[in-house]
Write a protein that binds this DNA or RNA. Structure first.
Length: 419
DNA sequence: TCTGGGGTCCTAGGACCC
DNA sequence: TCTGGGGTCCTAGGACCC
């Protein structure tokens, strides 16, 4: 059996852990730049605030309903996530951390266990130790565990947030209940196509012909069909080193000057380089993209990206910044209002197995230098050591008007308890 | 005025090789 | 009028996830 554990309304729940006065009240968390809604408490969902709602369009609604609004505090969420995952790791030797708020457990050899009780225990302990409410779905396959979890979430009172699919009857009933567009792995395009041939539930989907599924939804869709049918097809996945790493941001205001974008691109390249060093990889190519605000129909639109093949693999901040800058100069055009830009590094090779090049190679001196920079930044705070091309005066800032304290990761933000 | 960020996998088609 | 067969690699685009 597999268990899927999912934190309920994760970001909103994290904010509530340190603001117990908000329990039972509507809470939303906004994306970077306070742009749109990325998490909602159940009360906020009930009011009718949709996922992805633009914050400025809902300002009035927030006020009218006393919705508590937070800027995204990823330092807090990341740390809370780790605490939850640490606890879950104690429930099975095989765990796959699927996302910041979700994990699969493989329950192999648990035949003698009362899994209903086991799930309830997980839920109790995570709630008690971290303050985060979770839902638990247990079933013979990963896709079915996802379905079970959905049911556990949908009927929290009746099921106490734990649901098990362990009989053929329960499986059929669950799949008939689940709408096709809510199936894990079926997105907007696929559900549109499926509805057109009168496939409206997960159950209908499992009744389709294998060949049809393979043709229209490719091999991924076929695997999903089998997994939903109760044939274990998807297994836990190992943590793999990343194949792409990107850093991208929208700007609070539009940028029109090359110099403004240059500072951002250099900073993004430095950030990618840091992430690369963290996983001991070097990249062989780098992509830079810039684009205008697509929502502004009144302004001329422009969007371009460029890939640069590096002459040698590197993860040096300075080298990557130089190449990123080069790409930016090639794609930048005067006369546009730029809203977003980013750097993506790709095509990785391991740091310690460098292919030597005849004519050009990375500057070996950068290796110890970068080690020192990483060490200093780790001890004294992010971006204490920066390149000259970065925002030395710290002009750039993200719109974060409602940021909560970093309760668990910053010494000065730890809560004070008055006894 | 204001609309996020970071990933994965698969497939088709073109360029190229012998 | 008729023009081989069998590959690899790369890229762009489309689909999906949180």
């Amino acid at each position: 059996m597999f268990a899927l554990i999912d934190c309920n309304n994760f970001y909103a729940s994290c904010e509530r852990v340190f603001r117990p006065d908000l329990v039972g009240k509507p809470v939303v968390v906004l994306s970077n730049n306070d742009g749109c809604v990325i998490a909602r408490s159940s009360e906020a969902k009930a009011i009718g605030i949709p996922m992805g709602a633009a914050a400025f369009e809902y300002e009035k609604m927030f006020k009218q309903n006393n919705v508590h609004v937070f800027s995204a505090n990823f330092a807090l969420y990341g740390d809370m996530s780790q605490r939850v995952m640490d606890i879950l790791s104690g429930y099975s030797p095989e765990i796959e951390i699927y996302s910041i708020d979700e994990a699969f457990l493989k329950l192999k050899g648990f035949e003698k266990f009362d899994l209903q009780k086991y799930g309830a225990e997980m839920r109790y302990k995570v709630q008690k130790w971290t303050g985060i409410p979770i839902s638990v779905g247990i079933a013979p396959t990963k896709a079915l565990a996802k379905v079970a979890n959905k049911i556990a979430k949908k009927y929290p009172k009746e099921l106490q947030n734990v649901y098990i699919i362990d009989t053929e009857e329960k499986r059929a009933k669950a799949l008939k209940w689940l709408k096709i567009e809510d199936v894990w792995g079926i997105g907007r395009q696929h559900s549109k196509r499926l509805k057109a041939i009168n496939v409206n539930t997960a159950y209908d989907f499992t009744q389709l012909d294998d060949a049809w599924v393979k043709t229209h939804l490719a091999i991924v869709g076929l695997r999903l069909k089998h997994d939903l049918s109760g044939i274990p097809t998807l297994d836990l996945e190992e943590v793999q080193p990343k194949k792409n790493i990107s850093t991208a941001r929208s700007f609070e205001n539009n940028y029109t000057e090359l110099e403004q974008l240059r500072e951002r691109i250099v900073t993004f390249a430095v950030s990618c380089a840091e992430k690369l060093r963290k996983q001991n990889s070097c990249c062989n190519s780098l992509r830079v993209f810039i684009h205008t605000n697509e929502h502004r129909k009144d302004l001329p639109q422009y969007s371009r990206n460029m890939v640069i093949k590096l002459p040698f693999p590197t993860n040096s901040s300075m080298e990557l910044a130089t190449f990123a800058n080069l790409a930016l100069q090639k794609i930048f055009r005067e006369g546009y209002h730029y809203k977003k830009a980013g750097v993506i590094v790709q095509d990785f090779t391991p740091e310690n197995t460098q292919q030597l090049k005849l004519f050009e190679s990375r500057n070996e001196k950068h290796i110890p230098l970068m080690q020192v920079v990483d060490k200093l930044n780790k001890s004294y705070g992010q971006q204490k050591i920066r390149l000259a091309g970065q925002d030395i005066k710290r002009i750039w800032k993200m719109k974060q008007e409602k940021l909560s304290p970093r309760y668990t990761t910053k010494l000065s933000d730890i809560i004070t308890i008055h006894c």
